[in-house]
């Protein structure tokens, strides 16, 4: 295999690695948008929160509560962090977002922007903006795998596969189960679903909890790869917005596919013209806007 090809594949894998995070975050945004008609600007901050919960569980919680020996590692964090973030999300929905549904959706965006600033500011006060390495990467996922064209860190491969499974499961639940049918019906005509005797407000809270929980999960998965930083959410959320504009927010599968594909493309760009890697997704968004304003998988309305 020639060098160029190897380089492309290698960057492609790294790009895919970013792509699964784009996919998980845009998936969460799409699920929330479908049910609440709110674009959750705090999604990036909640992703950051997920990573910080993992970091705190491993390094800070023990000393805080006087049990210096307590270090909750990656696997417990993988379960606890999404739950913590999801519960925090539900709290936001119950106490704040709920009051804005009758107003222009722009207010939901502005509210969650404020929440994002508060979270980012709070963590910036206590943690290093340059990032703190996550120390508790599991032993079993250290080292590398030989993929033929490159050696690839075992953990990154795990993160890719795990995220894809999570995305697929989410898609399956929404599109193929009774629970999902209820959700889709709730998106289409919440009033009637309510009249049938289903508690729609609770369904909305749980949906927001699930979507934000996904962001928390992405945060835990990202912690061992990127260093845990108060700014990590702000940097990714704008890219994810572009992904969502490209994919169109109406479709679950669209959100996943667009996330993965754009991660790949971003990775490849590093091979061909590295300075454009930061902006290639935004330029693709421009092209999509010119050709298909509703997004690749969106319904025009």
């Amino acid at each position: 295999m020639d060098v160029m090809m190897r380089l492309i594949l290698a960057q492609g894998m790294l790009g895919l690695n970013n792509g699964v995070f784009y996919a998980m975050l845009s998936l969460g945004l799409a699920v929330i948008f479908g049910m609440l008609n709110v674009v959750n600007f705090a999604h990036g901050a909640l992703y950051m929160l997920g990573a910080f919960v993992a970091l705190i569980l491993s390094s800070y919680l023990g000393p805080w509560i006087g049990l210096d020996a307590l270090h909750l590692g990656f696997w417990p964090a993988l379960i606890i962090a999404p739950i913590v973030v999801g519960c925090f999300g539900m709290l936001i929905e119950r106490t704040m977002l709920r009051w804005l549904y009758k107003f222009d959706p722009i207010y939901g965006l502005l509210l969650t922007f404020g929440i994002a600033l508060v979270l980012q500011g709070l963590f910036s006060n206590y943690f290093n903006s340059a990032g703190t390495p996550y120390p508790a990467q599991p032993e079993s996922l250290r080292g590398v795998v030989h993929l033929g064209f490159m050696v690839f860190p075992k953990y990154r491969l795990f993160a890719i596969l795990f995220s894809i499974v999570v995305c697929f499961l989410t898609w399956f639940v929404i599109e193929r189960t009774r629970l999902g049918a209820t959700l889709r019906a709730g998106v289409e005509n919440p009033e009637l679903v309510q009249a049938f005797g289903i508690n729609v407000p609770r369904m909305i809270t749980l949906t927001f909890g699930f979507g934000t929980g996904l962001a928390g999960l992405a945060g835990v998965l990202a912690a061992p790869i990127y260093s845990v930083s108060p700014l990590m959410g702000a940097n990714i959320i704008i890219v994810v917005f572009a992904v969502v504009v490209i994919g169109g927010m109406g479709s679950i599968l669209g959100a996943i596919t667009a996330g993965l594909a754009l991660g790949l493309i971003e990775g490849m760009t590093k091979v061909f013209y590295a300075p454009a890697a930061n902006t290639v997704i935004f330029f693709l968004m421009v092209i999509v806007l010119l050709i298909r304003p509703a997004g690749l998988f969106g319904r025009q309305n």
Binding site: L117, V118, L122, N125
Partner: peptide, 8 residues
């Protein structure tokens, strides 16, 4: 960073 918290 408290400025950011206050603004938010």
């Amino acid at each position: 960073s408290w400025v950011q918290v206050v603004i938010g």
